[in-house]
Amino acid sequence: MTTPLVVLADLAAFALGPILAVGVIQRTRSVWAGRRGPPILQPWFDLQRLVRKTAVYGHTATAIFRVAPWVGLAAAIAGGVVVPILGVAPLLSFPLDFVWLAYAWGLGRAALMLGALDTGSAFEGMGAAREATFATLVEPALFLVFGALSLLTGQHALAGLLAVQPTSGGDVFVWGASVAALTVVVLIEGARLPADDPATHLELTMVHEVMVLDHSGPELAAIQATAALKLALGIGMLAALLNPWSGDQGAIGLALGCNLALSLGLAVAIGSMESLAARLATRDVPRYLLGAVIAGGVALLGTLWQGAA
């Protein structure tokens, strides 16, 4: 059950997690490139700077263009309240809340895509098309993983699914495949390498960034905050899945500490992966996502072997 302390901790994680996640990843990349790099709180400074600016809107843009980033942020938050970001308990939990998560984030994505099409430019259209195409492959991977975990644990709420403790060989198989598939999903939702390079300036190669090319000022701040929030929540989910004390009501401190450590480790790992691996060609991203779907399928097959009933 959620105590007020846990609720406060979750809210703090909601506020600080996105900034720290992006900051740590950026710092790790700089270290790998032999530089000092920006301060870890740089994303917060960026958001502050953007909020102070005046936005400029295109001639073709209607109200949808202005509303879309805020709807995206609202949808990301509304979906994210079911994620146990600290591995203890989420702000809200109900059966099949992972369905709510997936579809609420889908609403945010649809809003951003409509905002992109509102500019009447080929670049944003290209970004929206890529984003929509990759989403069609991410959804089955996500549901295969959550379905497999649900069959394994018998739970239907996200917090319960992520609290799975693999004991036997079959369990570990399912759990391992789920971690692999979920990692790919988190990287795509957060618009990171190897599918999308957040540091590139080449618009023709971008997926998420080019979709929001025309936004400026506070709207751009909302969009960047949304992407960072989804990344932080994804990292929190992965950490909760890896965390041995996840959801353990008797060892809240241990669960919290372990989750934080794992989140930090995951952020460093993501930054290292981004520094050491090259970017995939855009034509190869569907194949990469299909790999995640297959991993999810493998996880599901693992439950058959397990004989979960």
């Binding site: 005046t54 936005a55 400029v56 295109g58 001639h59 430019s121 670049f123 025309d214």
Partner: peptide
């Protein structure tokens, strides 16, 4: 708000 031509490169 300020209006301008769509940026897009």
């Amino acid at each position: 708000a300020r209006r301008a031509v769509t940026w897009a490169c």
